[in-house]
Every structure is written in C-alpha cells, then in structure tokens.
Nucleic acid binder design. Structure first.
Lengths: 207, 207, 207, 207
DNA sequence: CATGAATGAGCCTTCATTCAT
DNA sequence: GATGAATGAAGGCTCATTCAT
C-alpha cells in the first residue's frame, strides 16, 4: 500500500518537513486536550507557531493534519520497536522482551497513541485504510515473533491462535494508554507489564 | 455515584420516557453512520420522528443526547448480562459462560457498543465520570465472578491479577466490536469465543 | 426548458415567496452598486432585512441569489411587455409601440436590467442556460411581431433578417441601460426612442 | 485624457514592456476562461511565466492587470482599424468597409473583446473613465466617417443621429462577440456583416 | 406540548499582498 | 530583479440553540 502523500504548496522539501513537524507536534497536544473536531485550524496554526495562512501552505484540508499525525505516530512506534526488537530470534525471552518493550513504547507515547486511537476514525475514506494497514503491520510484527517461537517449538499454536494472540498483545498494549484512568490507579507500568505478560503467557488455570 | 439526570421541559414522565426512547434509537443509528460530531441536531430530531423544537423540549444540549445514548447502551448490556449470568456460582464453567455470553452481547449490540466506545470521549466533564463508572461496574461483574472462583480454589490469583484479568475480558470483548474490520475476516463469533477463552484461561506456554 | 427550482429549507411557501422578494430587492440594489462578486452574503442578508442564517434558509449557495435575481428580472420585463403589447396585430404602429414600450420598460428597470446584463455570466453551468433561454424568449416576442408584419406585407424580410432584427431591437434596448453613461448626455428617453425607431425602421440611406 | 500609468518597481523600461506583454497575454487567456474575479494572481503569474513575487514588481494591485488588459485590447482594436480604414473618404463604400472591417476585427479578437466587455465594469473609479474614454474614441471614429458622408451628401443625418448611429454600429459589432452563443447558430460572419449592413443602412420599411 | 423559522457565533478555507533572501 | 514563503483579513456557509406561534 503506497503512502498517501499530502500535497504542499511550498516547494522546499526541507522546509515542508520542518513545518510539518511543528504542525504535528502542535496538533497532537491539541487533539489530546480537546479531540480533533473540537480543535480549530487556527488553534493548530497557533500551536504550530505560524499563521493560519501558512498552515494551509502545507496541507489542503483540516483532515490532512489528522492523517499526518496518525501517520507520524505509527512510524514513531514502529521505528522504536524495530530498533529494539529482534523478531527473528524465536525464544520465550524474545517474546517477553518484545511485549515489554511495546508496552513501554505505548507508555512513553501515551498521549500520541491515545490521540491516534480515538481520532483515527475521523479520517476520511481516503486515509483510513492506509492507517489501518499500518496497524496491521504492527500486529504482524508480533505474529512474526510468535511464528518463530512455534517453529522453535517453544510453544504450539495454530495459525489462527497466533493471529489472535498478536491482536491481543497489540490491544492490551493500547489499553494501557486508553484506560489509564482506571489502570494507573492500580498498577505501575512495571507491574502492568509483569502481570500482563504472566496472564498472557500462562493463563489463569492451574494445571 | 448518582445518576446524572438530564432535565426536560416536558413534565409528563411517561412522555419523556417515550420521546427519549425514540431519540436514543434515532441517534444511535446516526452516530453509528457518521459519528457524534458529524451528526446534526436536526438529523437527530428527524430520525427520532419529531421536530428540532421538540427535541429541545427533552434535552438541554446536544451532548445530552450522547449521554443518554451511552447511558442506555450500558444499561442494555448490563441488563442482558445480569439476566443471563449468575455471578455467585464461582466455577470454571460459570466463568466461561460469562465470557461467552458477554462476547455474544457485544456481538449483538456491536453497533451500539462501537458508538459508545468511540464517542464517549466527547462527553463533557459532567457526564464522562458517570459513564466511566458504569464501565467499571461491568468490569466489577467479572471481578466478582473471578473472586468467587478464587474463593473456591478453581485457580489462584492475587487481587491485582483479578482486576487486570477482568479488564482484559472486558476490553477483549469490546475488541470484537471495534476491530471487526480485521477480526471478522479471520473468525466467526463462535471461533472467536472459543479461541479467546482458551488463550485467556490457559495462556500459551506449554507446561 | 423547466424552471430551475432553488430549494429552501423553510416549508411555508407563502413565507418563502415573501423572504425571497426581500432578498431579491436587497440583492439587486447591492449588485447594482458593487457587482455580484464584490457583494458578500452578509451584506445581502442585511439588505434583505434578516440574518445570514436566515438567508441560508432560503438558498443553498450565494449563486442562487444571482439566479433568483436574474430569473425575477426577466419575468418582470416579460410580464410588463405581455401586459402591454399585442404581438399578433402585425402592423407598423404595433411594431413601433412594441419597441417604444420595450425601451420604456428597460428604462424603468434600468438598474435591474443592468445587473442582469452584467452579472448573468457569473451564473454556473446549471443556471446560465435557463437564463439565456429566457432571453431568447424575449427576442422571440419581437420575432413574432415582425413575422406578423411580414405576413401582412407591411415590409418584406427573410427569416434570417427577422431574427437578426429582433436581436438588434433587444440589444439596442439594453444599450439604453448599459451605456447610459454615454447616451443620457445626449438624449432623453423619448428622443432615444424616436431616433432609434427611425434608424431601425428607415435606415440611413436616402432613397 | 492622459494615459493612466501603472507604476512598476522595475526600472528597465524594455523589461517592463516585455513582462507586461507576457502578463497581458496570460491574463487574457485566463479571464476568458474564468473571468477576472475567479482568476487568482498566482494563476496570472504562472500563466505569465513568472512568479507571484515578480508579478508584483510590475503592478501594484490585481486590478492593474485588468486595466492593462483592457487598455491593450482597445489599442489593439484601434490600431487594426486605423491601419485599414480611411475615415476621411466619406462615401458609402467607405462606410460599408469600415463596418465590415470593424466586425471582422471583433470576430478575430472575440475572446479579447468579450473579456473587456464583461470585465471592464470591475475596474475601479480610477481606471474606468479612462477605458470608457477609449471606447468613445472608437465610437468617434464611426462618427467621423458618418460626418464626412453627410458632408458629401451621401445621406442626411442630424448630429444626434450621427452619434446614435455610431453607437449602434459599435454595439452591434460587439454583439457579434457577446451574443455569439445565439448568433453563431444562425449566421456566418459574412452573413452577419452583410445582413447587419443592409439593416443598418436601409432599414426595413418598404418605400 | 409541538413546531419550525430565526439567529449569529464560529468554522474552514482562500487569496491578494508583502518582504526577506 | 526574481523568488516564493508568510501573512491575516475576509468570505461562504453551517448548525446548535431559542422562542413566538
């Protein structure tokens, strides 16, 4: 799936990158507080450090900002994951590390993840599939790790189970972000990681 | 936490109930399609079968509609659960049934659940805590079941683990609603229930 | 060619008619001064005696106002002509009267005619053909009179000449409106009518 | 009436002339398609082959472009007329030739004439009188020819009739441009010239 | 109680114009 | 001289809310 390019009036690629960085940063902080729909383009411009006119030199429609934000967040999450995680190892510790690291990334980028999580649905039909696809790529990372473990007979799972388990890891990671109003009262991040890892891997049934 | 009452200009309680039912039904179908912010009050009125003027006889602000909708959905989900599930039994089959039944309710009310799930955040500071509290009550239902199982030594979990596990059940149930774009390609509802139950209870580690 | 209906949100047909009359009157006076593009919707609303919100209860787009204005002006001109002129008589005096009367109508509605004349081109592809068609209907009125004269052997013209002559009358009438900056310095309306009639009918060549 | 000079920041007169030629050419083609108001300065710059910054080195306001365009078109029309027509001859064939030639010029420059015709009214109070004056000069050309004919007793007209007839020629020439949507269906240019000449000179009354 | 016309704050977006490089 | 990024006033339009009937 090819990247959806948001056209800018400004030619200088360097500048476009810089301004969009300002924009994304400003927008995330606003979306976090008030959500996409409640945030006005003027607020985005001001938070980005330039005028409304300038904002529209770098996007065409308000929705482009949201797309840019979502796009960026996923890239950020994935970059961090890819830098830290070896998906090919295929042992239990590798899996645990991946889960722990993913949970930590979510924690670190909790505002960003929350924003994307809550606002992505406001993307139009043009952008949504692309963002959803990025999500699947993240899930696929976990699938890959799991598959390698199964290959190595660390545990035994059907393909269906692998995919579902990968989704579970992904969603339970996000959960730390989108349910922090409940979870932070009960756990530290480390506790959360430890407990979730345990529950995920061992289940609850005494055997 | 006491119920937040939405004041109506109309006095006849019977009528208020009837009109609000129309309203909630109309609003859900609209929110489902276009989200809360994209839906206008006029559309809500029309979908409810009365005029914009009448709509405002039964609410004060547009947000009240959202609150009413969220409130109703939770009641619906909880009513169904309470009708079907005995939370005091405390054996493994009871837990499995509760999970299965909850998942089925989510499936049945998937549009409603999705709406609430995606739009609840648009509630103002006045209503949000109340809705969040309802969510915790649902989670508490699972906590209660789990706690009874632990009491009965069906399995052994710390209080922290109980709470987290309950959250996991709750969120993984919702996941069937909010990630159906991905999950329905891979599983039927029955498969989903069976696999999730297995993964949740047994984990993945070969022991 | 069917009338292009401009949809209104307001249901009461009586009210729609009344409000649109206010609107057309206000808009003409503004378009006269500043032209369509230089006139803002807010100005139109104010000149019509209601708010911007109300304006948009009776039109969908700014261009609708222009269409309504053009439509009205043509109806006005034609109504007046049809009330006063008998197109079936077919004698020279009848033709002269028609020309004179048309010129007087243009003079009376000179602001309106000027507006329509200058701004009609701003109509979109949807409305323009309809307005152009109305213009042709006016021309056709003169064609009809001329044709009757030819039938009565008042003078002899080919069909091509009839049509062109009708266009000439029409445009030379409008000319009194759109070139008044030059013509009013030289002629009164009566003089203009007399002279144009003479030139049109007799030409200039001494025979 | 002295020429209204549009000030340029650039000193080099040669360059100013060259750039403005590019500008006028680009602008006419745009105004033709979309009208003055719908055309943006950026589009004019692009169509002229230089940047928006450069455009403003050669004009002060967008309206200057329109003035320059109108000014140029009139010069163009008049130059062509003056090159071909001898206004002093004073016989019937000279008049016929002048009319025919004028109509041909209008046909050749029909886009330009249409633009000027439709957009001139958008000129501000500063420029409009000047352009209107140019128009009168064109009319005066016909007056002059007519006056010479009257002097030569080719036909007999009062001064008032001369002026009106000159206006008629001028407007009926333009009519070929601004009513081509109707006229081209009925006549070729040659037919139009022939018929109009006949109607203008001979009138329609059988004598 | 029901209706729907009226309101106007406020939103997104455009674009003429400027000015530092 | 040329460029094009930056600006912000202003425009078209929407929609939550009110209130007279």
């Amino acid at each position: 799936m090819k990247k959806r390019e948001v056209p800018a009036s400004v030619k200088d690629e360097r500048l476009v990158k810089k301004r969009r960085n300002q924009m994304i940063k400003g927008a995330i902080s606003l979306f976090k507080q008030k959500g996409f729909h409640q945030t006005t383009t003027r607020e985005i411009a001001r938070a980005s450090g330039f005028s409304i006119g300038t904002l529209y030199e770098y996007i065409r429609k308000k929705e482009d900002v949201l797309y840019l934000v979502c796009d960026r967040i996923y890239d950020e999450v994935r970059d961090r994951m890819e830098q830290a995680i070896d998906t090919t190892q295929g042992d239990l510790d590798g899996l645990k590390l991946a889960i722990a690291y993913y949970f930590r990334v979510v924690d670190e980028l909790q505002d960003e993840v929350l924003v994307m999580y809550q606002e992505a649905k406001s993307l139009g039909k043009e952008s949504l599939p692309y963002v959803l696809n990025k999500e699947l790529q993240m899930v696929a990372m976990f699938e890959h790790i799991l598959r390698r473990c199964v290959d190595n007979r660390v545990f035994s799972l059907t393909e269906q189970e692998i995919q579902l388990f990968a989704h579970n890891i992904f969603v339970l990671g996000q959960m730390w972000g989108f349910r922090r109003w409940a979870l932070k009262k009960m756990y530290t991040l480390d506790e959360y990681i430890e407990l979730q890892t345990k529950l995920l891997l061992e289940g609850i049934i005494k055997r």
